[in-house]
Amino acid sequence: MLQFLIRRLSGAVVIMFLIGAFTFFLFYTIPQDFAQLACGKNCSPENIAVIRENLGLDKPITTQFWEFMVGIVSGRDFPQGHCSAPCLGVSFDSGEFVWDSIMDRFPLTLSLTVGGLVIFLLFGLGTGLLAAWKRGTAVDKVVSGASMVLSSFQIYFLGPIVLSLLVYQTGWLENPKEASITDDPAGWFMGLLIPWIVMATIFTAQYTRMARSTMIEQLQEEHVRTARAKGMRQRYVFFRYAWRGSLIPIVTIIGMDLSALLSGAVVTEYTFDLAGIGRLAVTGSLTKDLPLTMGVMLFGAFFILILNIIVDLAYAYIDPRVRLA
């Protein structure tokens, strides 16, 4: 177990480093002077020189990369002040510390993700199990049909429809907005309700379909038949034997979706005009803001790698045949 964690975490560090290097050097293939960009339009050569020095752009690319990576571990000093670890550099565009920008946006992304996740796991797995239990009946057909239709929807399509219905036409809810969960819990909840509902609707449909099909597959396993042959109640067999086997594919998908959402739900954020990590990422690449892009990339990669390890740990917990080595 410990060996597994050490191996996987060190592997994750190496991958993060490689992702960083790849992003960094790829960025420099863009035929652009970053100092010019940072300086704006009417910029004197002196200003450019100052900016270049401030941003460290006068040094060789490899040195710049190295300083960036060292900064993540031990912090860095900038003219604006000390940037403590994990330091992801200073944004070319805004001049703020990238880490601070990310932390500023992260609460929204986290709220959006966790709230959505709770809803779509609850409903998605619930209806999926129901459909599998009632396989072949009208309930199953309705659930399967609805989830088929809904899962082919897109957030940018469903979002405006829901907004128009619940906000503009009926006035039941307000436009989505961000509020602090600690200062204004009710505002936080109401503000994010519509994005959650829309996001969760589409994910629910996908999870329903997946839960249904893996459960049906598991119910045909021979060991499930053995359990029934022992006289175990149908519900017990369903939840103990078949459900346990369905967990592996479900956990895999949850891990993937979670890491994707945590590294920024671009479409959701734009649809509801919210400012999360996704918007930061888009801004970073549109303004060719190298530190910001690097920061968001590495931040997302971190979640992907960590969730990967967590999913593997979950496998070992679910299936005794899986050994962590």
């Binding site: 396993e221 021979e222 060991h223 499930v224 038949r225 053995t226 359990a227 042959a229 022992k230 103990r240 034997y241 346990r244 086997g245 679910i318 299936d319 005794p320 045949r321």
Partner: peptide, 16 residues
């Protein structure tokens, strides 16, 4: 009435 199946590997649940 009890039953014994052909392949004990698949007929026993791997999870318990």
């Amino acid at each position: 009435v009890a039953m014994i199946f052909q392949d004990p590997l698949t007929a026993l649940s791997p999870y318990y």
